[in-house]
Nucleic acid binder design. Structure first.
Lengths: 134, 134
DNA sequence: TTTATTCCCACCAAATTCGTAGGGATTATA
DNA sequence: TATAATCCCTACGAATTTGGTGGGAATAAA
């Protein structure tokens, strides 16, 4: 049970962008150096975040990335939902869960409850609060 | 973020043992067939559970496994702590976490909170309750 | 045009997961 | 003691995931 490096990197970058606060795009290079994340690896992460609409990209010189939404609204759950291939605690509650035992499985309700608990907690942390160390 | 098949199997077997309720050891073969878990794979899982003291094994003819403790006391958290190599939500809070950024990491407190939330929830489910479908 | 930047696609090494295989060791029963 | 049922140990292996690289093409500002 673990959050991937990709997810942790994504969250840190989003927090860094929130901390900057500005509307000027921050280049990938600066983010990678500042957060000590491999440049090329972060590139892939930013693409995913952009496709999900969490950041906007500007190409060309003086380009970079900036937050699309309000850091007081965007939460850790929003970010991790994008990067984590499966956000489910157990495969049983994942996207392509097709367990023949599902009907009579004694543990399924617990996995659902666990998913809910995780989601609830992650929704409590906004980028703004994380950036300010609250 | 996922609980491994090993963990899910372990939990199901522990629940099956709780459902049996008796003090007679249940042979591996019966557990494997009943829970549709590969025999040899389950063998390794049972060894881990036995080493952790959650089940007692009896060797030889008419041998098998039985719960060591009270199913009203033993929880899902107790079981999963044994089988999951790392029970931490993020590597940052794992056993051998040695991140140089730990001191100033804005996300570390959140990972700790997440660990706590997961543990709290899993501690709420006893084997007895799970077996009875509560 | 030069320079700085994102975007796209393919590739790769290491680790992990989910098992399988086979042979011992131990013990209850007959 | 003989036998059968069971646990115990070690090793292997295929598939998948993870974490990361590399080389360019498109785009935009100076």
């Amino acid at each position: 049970m673990i959050v991937s490096a990709k997810g942790r990197y994504a969250l840190r970058v989003m927090i860094a962008l929130a901390a900057k606060g500005g509307r000027e795009p921050v280049p990938l290079k600066e983010l990678a150096l500042g957060e000590e994340i491999p440049h090329k690896f972060l590139e892939g992460i930013m693409t995913e975040l952009a496709k999900a609409g969490l950041v906007e990209s500007t190409r060309g010189k003086n380009g970079g990335y900036r937050l699309t939404g309000d850091p007081k609204v965007c939460t850790a759950a929003d970010v991790l939902r994008v990067t984590e291939s499966s956000f489910a605690a157990a495969a049983c509650t994942g996207a392509n869960a097709e367990c023949p035992r599902a009907e009579r499985c004694p543990t399924l309700p617990m996995w659902r409850a666990l998913d809910g608990a995780v989601d609830d907690l992650l929704k409590k942390y906004t980028l703004d609060e994380l950036a300010r160390g609250i």
